[in-house]
Amino acid sequence: MSTTARFNRPARLLHWTMAVMILAMLLIGVAMVTSVAHYHALVALHRPLGLGILVLALLRLANRWRHPPPELPSDLPAWQRRAAHASHLLLYGLMLGLPLVGWAMLSAAGYPIGLGGAVVLPPILPRDPSLYAWLRSLHTLLAYALFGVILVHLGAALMHGLIRRDGVFSSMASRPIPYRSR
């Protein structure tokens, strides 16, 4: 049994906090665009939560830059290594991109972007209905993409944790999990 390098504490804290926030956000988002009765309440949650995710994603990127993540196990097949790299690029791109597209889209629609109380975000794009329509579709498309990548991420993480038992899962777990070294 052994333990290898792990993500640092801020990285783990950010990962699990954001995991909950992003999963909630995706469920809120997909319910919000169909619901009649709960539309307003869900929109009121969606906007501040989205801004929160954007801010935390930036913090996380900064932390990752200063504290690079642990290496993947050396016996991991090359295609899995490439897939892991690509999926993490996608995850970061979408964590930052979705809130920004949301903000841009509401700006182009000319909506005041209220976050609760009298707090209103400034627009980041000029009002333009056709740009809004395009960004609105993009927001949905990116949200589906993020959910898809998260499913793959979840599946892969569990494969590492339960099947391969190679220390990749425990590097992000809240406390070290002993695993069999190979």
Partner: peptide, 29 residues
Amino acid sequence: LGAIGALVTGTAGAFAYAGGWLSPGMLTQ
């Protein structure tokens, strides 16, 4: 493997439920 499959499928199911795909008769916007 079965447990992993169930967890991933369950997550996808929660998303489908929230999006109303499992309630075809629901009044939507």
